[in-house]
Simulated scan of single mutants.
Amino acid sequence: MKSLLLKGANWIILIGLALTCYGIYEAVTQRNISASPEAIDISSLVNYEGELKYVTITGGRLDLANTYEYTREKKGKVRSRDFYSPILGKDDKPVYIMQFENEPTMEMAFTEAKFTGLLKESSGLPSDILDAYTAEFSGTDYFMLQTDFTYKTMGERLKLIGIFFAMFIIGIVIRKALTRSSRNTQQETEA
């Protein structure tokens, strides 16, 4: 029983540490993102330098013919599905790749694109999707718009980091208590 509790404490430490580190990384990389989306036109993305921005992009059209589905599975069960579609500029080259949670509709292809999300470099795309678009649109620079982005204040981020750090500390305390009691028992039996 003790070894099982010790293994559980080790897992709590590992998960708490990993989530704390990820929370700090996310807080640092997204520290300059504003609470309200910045309205920009698709033509202004020519000057985009790759920094993370919360934006509403207008202009361009959705290319349904090059929409890819990306499915995450675990043990044969679908955990999540995303759809990736390029938004084409006036020269019919992709300017950015949209991430949709639901399959894009035909109606979306015939209206001017207007989408809100976190704009970032195309390296944020899953590798399979990035390879497919690189093969399809070689020599074109494009970006990714993550539509499922939810803005969090620094206070909300710190609160989550604190919860994960507390989990890490609890794991250490449990481990210390379990290992200390075994040392005390060994000393008592030797005396």
Score class of each variant (00 low, 15 high):
residue 129 I to A: 08
residue 136 E to T: 15
residue 176 K to W: 11
residue 179 T to H: 02
residue 170 I to Q: 01
residue 162 G to D: 07
residue 135 A to I: 08
residue 134 T to G: 03
residue 175 R to P: 00
residue 162 G to L: 07
residue 179 T to L: 11
residue 177 A to K: 11
residue 162 G to Y: 07
residue 152 K to P: 02
residue 166 A to W: 02
residue 156 E to G: 07
residue 162 G to F: 05
residue 156 E to N: 05
residue 145 L to H: 10
residue 168 F to P: 02
residue 170 I to V: 15
residue 155 G to H: 05
residue 135 A to K: 15
residue 130 L to C: 00
residue 138 S to E: 15
residue 131 D to G: 07
residue 135 A to M: 10
residue 178 L to A: 04
residue 157 R to L: 06
residue 132 A to G: 03
residue 168 F to K: 01
residue 162 G to S: 09
residue 158 L to M: 15
residue 156 E to S: 12
residue 148 D to H: 13
residue 153 T to M: 05
residue 172 I to T: 00
residue 153 T to W: 04
residue 158 L to E: 01
residue 144 M to D: 03
residue 174 I to N: 04
residue 130 L to V: 02
residue 166 A to R: 01
residue 141 D to G: 14
residue 142 Y to S: 11
residue 177 A to T: 13
residue 147 T to G: 11
residue 168 F to R: 01
residue 166 A to Q: 03
residue 146 Q to F: 12
residue 139 G to R: 09
residue 134 T to R: 12
residue 148 D to I: 03
residue 145 L to F: 12
residue 140 T to E: 14
residue 148 D to C: 03
residue 149 F to W: 14
residue 140 T to H: 12
residue 145 L to Q: 04
residue 174 I to K: 00
residue 160 L to K: 14
residue 167 M to F: 13
residue 159 K to A: 10
residue 135 A to S: 11
residue 160 L to F: 08
residue 161 I to K: 04
residue 169 I to M: 09
residue 158 L to Y: 08
residue 175 R to N: 08
residue 139 G to K: 11
residue 163 I to P: 01
residue 166 A to V: 05
residue 147 T to Y: 07
residue 128 D to W: 06
residue 136 E to R: 15
residue 167 M to A: 12
residue 143 F to C: 01
residue 147 T to S: 15
residue 130 L to S: 14
residue 138 S to Y: 06
residue 161 I to L: 04
residue 146 Q to L: 13
residue 130 L to D: 10
residue 140 T to Y: 09
residue 155 G to Y: 03
residue 140 T to A: 14
residue 164 F to I: 02
residue 149 F to L: 02
residue 133 Y to H: 06
residue 179 T to Y: 01
residue 176 K to E: 06
residue 172 I to S: 00
residue 166 A to M: 13
residue 169 I to N: 00
residue 160 L to G: 12
residue 129 I to E: 07
residue 134 T to M: 09
